[in-house]
């Protein structure tokens, strides 16, 4: 029964997110509005973590399963990739290196600045 109750809560938040996005004409996709809504409900204590924990953790731990059909849909859209397999891979490879480097270097810079500032106070 617990799983059904938790699933019901999660689906209701999903529906609320969809309705909010649609009727307020938000540029935010419904599920993401739902995610922000759940975050607000948890932070304000309206909803307790234990009220969704088991079902949510099952979904989070097995997230890949739910994307399999969307992944299979590549077989009807692979024409866009034709002749650009290597180039697309290189774009993803180089971009991933750049994102990781930019995030790591910027974060380290901020941390060092912060530590220096705190050091002066002591």
């Amino acid at each position: 029964m617990k799983i059904f109750k938790q699933l019901f809560i999660i689906l209701s938040i999903n529906l609320a997110g969809d309705l909010i996005s649609r009727y307020l004409h938000l540029p935010l996709p419904g599920p993401i509005t739902g995610m922000l809504l759940l975050l607000v409900l948890l932070l304000t204590g309206v909803l307790k973590e234990r009220q969704i924990r088991d079902t949510a953790d099952f979904m989070l731990q097995n997230m890949g399963f739910f994307f399999i059909p969307a992944g299979v849909s590549v077989m009807i859209s692979y024409q866009a990739l034709k002749g650009f397999y290597l180039e697309s891979f290189l774009v993803v490879l180089i971009s991933t290196i750049l994102v990781m480097s930019a995030t790591a270097l910027t974060t380290q810079l901020f941390i060092n600045l912060n530590e220096k500032k705190n050091g002066k106070h002591n």
Partner: peptide, 27 residues
């Protein structure tokens, strides 16, 4: 492909709730 998607679309429709629960690790 359409035959696979008869059932595939049922699984695909759970993408909404899966996105919603991403709030939990953030919380």
């Amino acid at each position: 492909y359409e035959h696979y998607m008869e059932g595939g679309s049922v699984i695909h429709s759970f993408l909404g709730p899966v996105t919603v629960v991403l709030a939990l690790p953030l919380y």
